[in-house]
Design a protein around this nucleic acid. Structure first.
Lengths: 332, 332
DNA sequence: AACGTTGGCGTCAACGTTGACGTAACCGCT
DNA sequence: AGCGGTTACGTCAACGTTGACGCCAACGTT
């Protein structure tokens, strides 16, 4: 098995010191054009690749970032992961990926492991109530970008979608079509602080002068199955419900299935609005009305924020809030 | 910013040498129970985490593996990525993720970068014709597991789904329902050697005694849009076609959309079979008949193969072929 | 009592790279 | 000629860890 090619190999081949090769490779300056040529030729010829472990050990920059999320089962996340990975690579960083299954303990493990690997920073879709965990790492010097939650700490930035506004928009849209009795299927994985979809929904209901019995909010797992179960429960308890705002598109799709299985037509008997605008949403029948989240923009903002934190540690970053948009299709 | 806690810090706190702390942390033996207790206590107290860069530099094991795939746009891949990541973590390894956009040049970049980061091995869903690239790395000493392609080299293993058999099964199923004129929408991203779905389709057609004009095989991008375009083309050229085998479920879903938009009912006027059994497939209407791929099993086999290659470099690994299964739903 | 063996630990060097610093050669200037 | 500055290198140590080896005390054996 051929040993790895090192600076020394290149150096002896060219007839200079390793330090000089290092200078050329990193383009530090302090070498003549002639040696530059020779070194680069030898680098090419021997197939030299810098060893990031050694480099990272001394520069304290490993050239890696971690992406920590709940999992890949919701198609919303992979699409984001891809965008973030692309941006990271453009910035010369390689991405670790780790999923937590939305379990705080696993998230702790994952962060420990990433810290061990000396990542330059992490992007986290936090599991349940783990803000303290994350601010802890940030205080220990790890740049952390939190998606869809708020916190203050050095080395920490937050980027969120404005889902409270989005939820309010969706709710107003439902009310505008003349519906009277709305319900919401929310997520059991969101801690109170992060229930901005619920807040938006309830706010819009209040503002619309809704004064019947308080609107029904159910919390289920944010999956198709959760949506199905939620819809069944909702229809059992309140058969008069004529509109649903779902936590995300998976839940909405599940809800539509449940409605159909009970013989209720969407949108004639009951309207459904989702959230996320995953690819599937335009393909199901009826096509789902939903809140579109600008994923490329989030990728951009998140990597930018992380980059800034890495380059200027501790500098304050104001939280970023990304506006969202309602896409009206056939389910309302 | 607090400096990282090192072996030395633990050592001085306990009053032993760093080497002893290292022995305890790695459970090498050669220490008394008393020191073990003291060391572990100090480790806990100081929050010591081994520095994988330093460790990897000397042991030549970084504790990382790379996952290289085309991208996250096909939901088939994320589901796999998650499984593989989970298995890798269970084996104590952290996963780098990198997507190639099915572009050989990008794949080359990505591999270079992973090599630089001293990954212990890589799992690759190869882009187009990149087997030589991959065997090159394998020969240089990098354990490589290739998914869905075949090659022979030291440090290289292959794991595939038996899609030729799957495609034949699907085709026979279509023929068994009495259909006469079948077409296939294949992928333009598969090099000839990897066109096993096409081979299975054509073989089943031949074996069935099909003797009309040769069945139509179109190659499109393996996306919903590709499937739509493919179906339109196929119906334009051969309006008599009554059954389609699609490269994957996305293509199949696109094909169904196109059929509907032309006023053809699925499955009454035209039947469609997909491949992969992504989550979406059971949710669209009509629910898609498709070839189910056992993703957990693939994750298992792939990580196992990589693990073996890492532990016993150069040892020969026979290629693994995973059987597949036809799931009959409503689209046929 | 002399001897080998073992357990428990320390010492030293090395992994591949870069930061800090040194130095010789050469330039232009007085 | 002497001086200061610059250019193009080289030297050395360090990052945090582990492999190789060495040492000493305690123990059992002859």
């Amino acid at each position: 098995m051929p040993r790895e090619v090192t600076l020394r190999d290149v150096a002896t081949q060219v007839g200079v010191s390793p330090r000089t090769v290092s200078r050329v490779v990193n383009d530090e300056g302090g070498f003549s054009e002639a040696t530059r040529q020779k070194v680069l030729k030898a680098v090419e010829q021997l197939g030299y690749q810098p060893n990031m472990l050694a480099r990272g050990l001394i520069t304290r920059r490993s050239g890696t970032v971690g992406l920590v999320g709940g999992g890949m089962t919701d198609p919303f996340f992979p699409a984001l992961a891809e965008g973030i990975q692309r941006k990271a690579r453009e910035a010369g960083r390689t991405m670790f990926f780790a999923s937590t299954d939305s379990d705080p303990a696993r998230q702790a493990d994952v962060l420990k492991s990433l810290w061990s690997h000396a990542v330059d920073g992490v992007i986290v879709f936090p599991a349940l109530d783990t803000i303290d965990q994350l601010t802890g790492y940030a205080r220990r010097g790890l740049p952390v970008v939190i998606v869809d939650d708020q916190a203050e700490a050095p080395n920490l930035a937050c980027v969120s979608f404005d889902l409270e506004a989005g939820a309010a928009m969706a709710t107003r849209h439902l009310l505008d079509t003349g519906l009277q009795r709305l319900g919401m299927i929310a997520s059991s994985l969101s801690p109170p602080r992060r229930r901005n979809r619920e807040r938006g929904f309830l706010r819009a209901m209040r503002e619309s002068g809704h004064r019947a019995s308080p609107p029904e909010v159910l919390r289920m797992l944010p999956t198709v199955e959760g949506g199905e179960a939620g819809m069944h429960q909702l229809l059992d308890r309140h058969p008069e419900i004529d509109g649903i705002f779902a936590y995300n598109d998976l839940v909405a799709i599940g809800a539509m299935r449940a409605a159909k299985s009970q013989g209720r037509r969407v949108p004639d008997d009951i309207a459904v609005v989702g959230c996320d605008d995953i690819d599937m949403s335009s393909l199901v029948t009826p096509a789902l009305t939903t809140i579109r989240l600008d994923r490329p923009l989030l990728s951009e903002e998140v990597t930018q924020a992380l980059h800034d934190l890495i380059e200027a540690p501790g500098s304050p970053r104001r939280p970023v809030m990304i506006p969202v948009e309602l896409v009206i299709r056939e389910s309302t």
